[in-house]
Design a protein around this nucleic acid. Structure first.
Length: 261
DNA sequence: ATGACATATGAGATATGA
């Protein structure tokens, strides 16, 4: 079982790169984020032409998530539940959950949360609370679960080339990290860190601006979190930097994990 | 340094990203 995640920053702009990557890496499951198109505008025919099924939760202009699978998948959810009935409905397309080959998988586009001091940061933290509640529910099913996506969290300073540049950023705030750690503390594993505990310079995002990519000024914010039943099967986890160097690249690059059976 | 890039929207600038 090969499961990957990639924030493509517009599926329409990235379609040729994504199709090439599907053919070369042949993942069983690929989580996509930042589709930036409505569900009906998703290039379904082209993806099917690459040999994949797609479950899509789109939205006009922003956000948008999908789960691509070789085998047909069954949709489980298109949004995180609210914790309190009084909470207003979340209109952002940031979560989609499915079952495929006995695995529970979810593609997550966690809010960025910047700038601090605006309503965007508490929205990020509330979203993370709702994610934790859903993660706990899935954990109790005692099945292989992979929660993958753009978490928009730099877990520790070692996950940034220049951590000092992120001190006042929502991605590295103690509250953001605490919510991320809550997922680990309830028993999910950060697949990449589990297999590469001391590796430095492992990044999944490089800004378009100021030559961040050629200077390797990156951060690790795309993660695959695995339940114990999935962690037990984890064989390999790596970041494929190649797509970030292509013409018309996304600012994120894929993270991939291989599991036994 | 609220800038540089990139993308979507809509048809010119503005919102969003991280």
């Amino acid at each position: 079982m090969r499961i990957a995640s990639w924030n493509v920053n517009s599926i329409k702009m990235r379609l040729p790169i994504v199709c090439d990557w599907l053919k070369s890496q042949s993942p069983d499951v690929l989580f996509l984020q930042e589709l930036k198109c409505e569900t009906d505008a998703f290039p379904l025919m082209e993806i099917q032409g690459c040999g994949y099924h797609a479950l899509v939760k789109g939205q006009k202009a922003y956000n948008g998530v999908a789960i691509l699978t070789k085998e047909p998948a069954v949709l489980r959810s298109e949004a995180l539940p609210n914790i309190n009935d009084s909470d207003e409905a979340d209109t952002h397309a940031r979560y989609i959950e499915a079952e495929v080959k006995g695995w529970i998988v979810a593609s997550i586009y966690l809010p960025n949360g910047n700038p601090l001091g605006t309503e965007k940061f508490p929205y990020k933290l509330r979203f993370m609370e709702r994610l934790a509640a859903q993660a706990k529910k899935l954990y109790k099913e005692e099945r292989p679960v992979v929660l993958g996506g753009d978490y928009n969290v730099i877990p520790v300073d070692a996950d940034a080339r220049h951590p000092e540049n992120w001190r006042n950023d929502a991605l590295a705030q103690p509250q953001s990290r605490a919510h991320f750690n809550a997922l680990l503390n309830m028993g999910y594993a950060d697949a990449f860190r589990t297999l590469h505990p001391d590796e430095k310079g492992a990044y999944t995002f490089w800004d378009y601006q100021a030559g961040a990519w050629p200077r390797d000024d990156g951060i690790r914010i795309d993660h695959l979190l695995t339940s114990p039943e999935a962690s037990d099967k984890l064989l390999k986890c790596w970041i494929d930097k190649h797509p970030r160097g292509l013409e018309k690249a996304s600012d994120h690059t894929p993270i991939i994990a291989d599991f036994s059976a």
